[in-house]
């Protein structure tokens, strides 16, 4: 049950992220919704499961982009795993902790992606606009993610309960 819901969530997020006209653009930048979803689930799930979730989200995004396939998958997996372990040391129910975790996670993810792409030939200069975009995306993800965490966490608990119920009742 939960895997079906996770897949639907990923699909919907990907469709929202790649929306046609004029696209999901705020002040000239696109929020990284797939990365945001991976990071939120990194705070909800166990680190191992979060890494798998991040890998799936990144791979789905890679298949749409069609370039550097597995780069998003690898980056999302690493960042989700890192956040999954790091957040265990903090009180994630605190909204400020969540904001900082998502802000840093998104920033790290974006920098890792650009470094990875640059090492495979993407000529993206490190200008102030690049850093500004990373900052803006991180801020957006931190803000939105800190608010969306609760409902998604509740949904996940409900899914675990349903799965357990199905398992026990057969």
């Amino acid at each position: 049950m939960k895997y079906v819901v996770y897949s639907v969530l990923l699909l919907l997020t990907l469709v929202l992220q790649t929306a046609g006209v004029p696209g999901l653009v705020f002040f000239g930048f696109k929020p990284e919704l797939m990365l945001l979803l991976s990071l939120i689930f990194a705070m909800i799930l166990e680190p191992g499961a979060a890494a798998v979730f991040g890998f799936a989200a990144g791979l789905a995004q890679d298949l749409v982009v069609g370039r550097f396939i597995m780069l998003h998958a690898g980056v999302f997996m690493v960042v989700a795993l890192a956040l999954g372990y790091a957040i265990q040391r903090f009180y994630r129910e605190n909204i400020i902790v969540r904001f900082i975790a998502l802000f840093l996670g998104t920033g790290l993810g974006e920098v890792l992606y650009l470094l990875g792409a640059a090492s495979f030939g993407l000529s993206m200069p490190w200008r102030s606009s690049t850093w500004l975009t990373i900052l803006a995306v991180s801020f957006f993800n931190g803000l939105v993610g800190a608010l969306v965490y609760r409902p998604l966490s509740k949904l996940n608990r409900h899914l675990i309960y349903l799965d357990e119920l199905v398992k026990r009742t057969g």
């Binding site: 790649t18 046609g20 995004q61 982009v65």
Partner: peptide
């Protein structure tokens, strides 16, 4: 659709 990433 559009590229999901800021870098493409």
């Amino acid at each position: 659709g559009r590229s999901p990433s800021n870098w493409e």
